[in-house]
């Protein structure tokens, strides 16, 4: 499971490998922290969870998550990004890896670590060495032409979340067009609409994560099965 195990000292600590690392990126204020909080509430009873925030200037996102008490304090870590949020998730992921590894050491049974990126532009993309899967969050009020403009985050994320649909009538954004444009640049990868204000549960995103974890566990199971069969064949010959 995961994309890049070369520098991962935890690959063998759990039967299903280390925690899945899920990146959440997107422009400033699009709802990344709100989504992170919603996912923690939705998943914390079924999954062993932790969060890393990449704040631009303060520890505001981490503080918000602590205040909302979505997870215990020792499951939330903030890293600083030296004025370059995309560097910390893409070019030099070491502070984030350090934070993930420290969390994993403290909670060896972790299933999922959510890494929230600092608010950035449309070219932001998580490194495969940091995130196994990534979600990009757009804000309806940021302009309904954003999906058409594409950009690495919009095009390449495993899931695109178009958030704040409640604001669409107020700002005159055409949701159907946003969905169509996103579909064109994303080659069939999923898009969901959300209003975390009106439906704070983030049900569809939580369901997508459950699906990812289920698929990975299944893949891993088959792997184990094959290894077992190889061992049997080797023993028989």
């Amino acid at each position: 499971m995961g994309a890049n195990h070369d520098h991962d000292p935890y690959a063998a600590t759990r039967p299903h490998g280390r925690a899945l690392r899920l990146g959440i990126g997107g422009p400033v204020g699009s709802g990344k922290t709100a989504l992170t909080a919603a996912l923690c509430r939705a998943l914390r009873d079924e999954l062993d969870l932790a969060v890393v925030t990449n704040d631009i200037y303060t520890t505001e996102d981490a503080d918000f998550l602590r205040r909302e008490a979505v997870l215990s304090d020792d499951r939330i870590t903030a890293v600083r990004t030296g004025a370059c949020p995309h560097t910390a998730i893409r070019d030099d992921i070491s502070a984030n890896l350090d934070a993930c590894e420290a969390l994993q050491e403290r909670h060896p049974g972790l299933d999922l670590i959510i890494v929230e990126s600092g608010g950035d532009n449309l070219t932001a993309l998580f490194s495969q060495g940091l995130a196994d899967r990534q979600i990009f969050v757009l804000d309806v009020a940021g302009g309904d032409d954003v999906p058409r403009k594409g950009g690495l985050g919009v095009a390449a994320a495993d899931l695109l979340v178009i958030n704040k649909t409640d604001l669409a009538p107020l700002v005159g954004s055409d949701l159907a067009m946003m969905g169509r444009d996103a579909g064109k640049v994303r080659g069939g990868k999923p898009v969901v609409f959300s209003s975390l204000r009106e439906r704070p549960g983030a049900d569809e995103v939580a369901a997508w994560i459950r699906g990812v974890l289920h698929d990975l566990a299944h893949e891993h199971g088959e792997h184990e099965h094959e290894h077992g069969r190889e061992r049997e064949r080797a023993a028989a010959s």
């Binding site: 890293v79 600083r80 990004t81 030296g82 370059c84 560097t87 910390a88 070019d91 030099d92 992921i93 070491s94 502070a95 350090d98």
Partner: peptide, 11 residues
């Protein structure tokens, strides 16, 4: 300076 060793976040 592009070595991915965390230096970019230290001043």
């Amino acid at each position: 300076s592009r070595l991915p060793a965390g230096g970019h976040a230290h001043s």
